[in-house]
Design a protein around this nucleic acid. Structure first.
Lengths: 167, 167
DNA sequence: GCCACCTTGTTTGTATACTAACAATAATCA
DNA sequence: TGATTATTGTTAGTATACAAACAAGGTGGC
């Protein structure tokens, strides 16, 4: 958080085509910024790989990760308001709206107005959605296993514990 | 589909709590699936938080994470083809195209045809882009520190090491 | 030289994700 | 009761991401 950057403006503004080694005074004061070692970059790449695994295992007509997350929270047959479902799955109102709309188009969820609160839209799985869940959960377990396959079981649990603390 | 899910998925996909010795066989048909303990869900939430931190520190007119990634790879004054820059920053051709277009609109990068290979578009930072880099890198260090602030230094390095192996 | 193949970049379409602004309804409080 | 405030959902706009289809320029094999 205290990245002291004092006087290396010239070091960055060097001529373009100069391949000369630029090692001067900045070495000790300001270590190089290596993008590939930053948390954000590593998380983005790890998630790209995870999403690729997700799509491969779920198949072309399977749900996306967020669609599956919404379905998983409804898999016990619960009927939940759209915004609340969004909070349970870490999606903001605008995002969950689109996710639910696409699930509804495919006949996996249905929406109806809440009789007790006219602002609310209640969402639940259809019979078709309920029937699909056991197979989807089985695939989801395979996805988790494949994502974590480069790590041992202990390493996997350590990773999950560390990630859980970053929120 | 992969019929090997039951043993493998169970080995990795279980809750983090320690009540599952490694040798235990799956007698119960389907242990609970808890979305909030899956890698994908935890990574998505951790990245949401990171991106929020990124936007807060970079400010409203600052670059997005991918825009900054592209700029960081050009910060030494290099001139790189658009596709190659995409590979260096883990973006596919369609994605890097949009990122570069938006940076060019803001006058931070410039594109010119490669004289030696007419398929290529060479990209580099403008003078304005070069001048902005030291301040942006300083902010990027603060972003990394804030993202990792819930963890000790050792935990942070362990997390980075584990994430790096997931690719 | 010629043809098949590969690489590079673009375009289109789908799906997240978030912000901001807005409308309708509910809840609270003075 | 009436005004203020909060919650819920929608719409529009921006920015990743990736797949698929395509065009055009290079490269290697023959």
């Amino acid at each position: 958080m205290t990245g002291r950057q004092s006087s290396n403006a010239e070091a960055v503004g060097e001529p373009v085509a100069d391949a000369a080694p630029r090692q001067r005074k900045a070495a000790a004061a300001t270590p190089d910024y290596v993008l590939d070692e930053q948390v954000g970059f590593l998380m983005r790449r790890a998630q790209q790989r995870h999403i690729a695994i997700f799509q491969r295992i779920m198949g072309d007509d399977g749900p996306t990760p967020t669609q599956f997350a919404a379905m998983a929270k409804l898999s016990g047959g619960e009927e939940i308001s759209q915004n609340q479902l969004g909070r349970m799955t870490a999606m903001d109102p605008a995002t969950i709206k689109g996710v639910i709309a696409r699930l509804a188009e495919r006949g996996l969820v249905e929406r109806r107005p809440d009789p007790e609160d006219q602002r609310r839209v209640r969402v639940r799985l259809t019979a078709k959605g309920l029937e699909a869940m056991p197979g989807l959960i089985e695939k989801a377990r395979a996805i988790t296993a494949a994502t974590l396959s480069p790590l041992s079981r202990e390493e996997s649990e350590r990773l999950l514990g560390l990630l859980a603390r970053l929120d």
